[in-house]
């Protein structure tokens, strides 16, 4: 085992000495990740919530979850490169593909697992389908919804790092380029990308806390794609 821990000291110095570069890269990665998560939300939330509300096609949610978990970032990028040139677009598409499954599955499970009796009571009170969605299902599903969003955010940040090899930019650019930035650059950028991932996760957690109705707060809910039901 090689234990050359002085490298970490060098890395910290690298961070100190290259604030501009690292900041630009970080911003780049945030933009990319935010875009991917945004598009992912636009695609996955309506489908997941819609199907969950109808309580139909559960096999879609399960299949999407399984396939999503089985997609290596590199493989998705590989296929993307076959059809598109290196650059922002192919990476964005790849990241969206990776972001959709956890959001969709969690949205589906979150909405469809709400007690049927609760929904029935709401219907009996005369709420329209839309009102049921807005006032009952979404609030009750929010713990799982946010668990899915958190998973997707962390996953996208991690995948964006890898996607640098396909021209995605961001801190991954430094990490995959030891030739240009040296080992201290690689380690430094790695430390920063960890911080970025934690920061994003924390951000979503804060938003979750603000949005979740009080009685449901503080309940730690497992990501639905994490602990799946056996077949």
């Amino acid at each position: 085992m090689i234990a050359d821990l002085s490298v970490f000291g060098d890395a910290l110095r690298f961070i100190q000495e290259n604030p501009g570069l690292l900041w630009d890269k970080t911003v780049e990665q945030i933009q990319l990740s935010a875009a991917a998560v945004g598009v992912g939300l636009l695609i996955a939330l309506p489908i997941g919530i819609g199907l969950g509300h109808l309580r139909r096609y559960s096999f879609v949610a399960i299949s999407v979850a399984n396939i999503g978990r089985a997609l290596p970032t590199l493989a998705v990028i590989a296929v993307g490169i076959v059809f598109l040139p290196v650059g922002f677009t192919v990476v964005l598409i790849a990241l969206v593909v990776l972001a959709v499954p956890p959001i969709l599955t969690n949205a589906y499970v979150g909405v469809s697992e709400i007690d049927a009796e609760t929904i029935e009571a709401a219907r009996g009170m005369g709420m329209t389908e839309r009102q049921i969605l807005q006032r009952v299902e979404l609030p009750l599903a929010s713990p799982l919804l946010f668990a899915g969003i958190r998973t997707a955010v962390v996953f996208v940040v991690a995948s964006a790092t890898i996607a640098a090899i396909a021209g995605g930019g961001g801190l991954g650019d430094v990490i995959v380029n030891q030739a240009s930035y040296g080992i201290e650059g690689v380690i430094g950028a790695s430390i920063l990308v960890c911080a970025l991932a934690f920061a994003c996760d924390g951000l979503v957690a804060i938003v979750q806390r603000l949005v979740t109705p009080k009685p449901l707060r503080g309940r730690h809910v497992d990501d639905a794609t994490l602990v799946s039901e056996p077949l």
Binding site: M1, T161, I162, C194, F198
Partner: peptide, 19 residues
């Protein structure tokens, strides 16, 4: 689990090498 995989790999390299 929150640590990006590539970063984790790279952070381990100085400790346990390219192994």
């Amino acid at each position: 689990y929150t640590i990006p995989s590539l970063a984790l790999f790279q952070l381990l390299v100085p400790i346990t090498g390219l192994t």
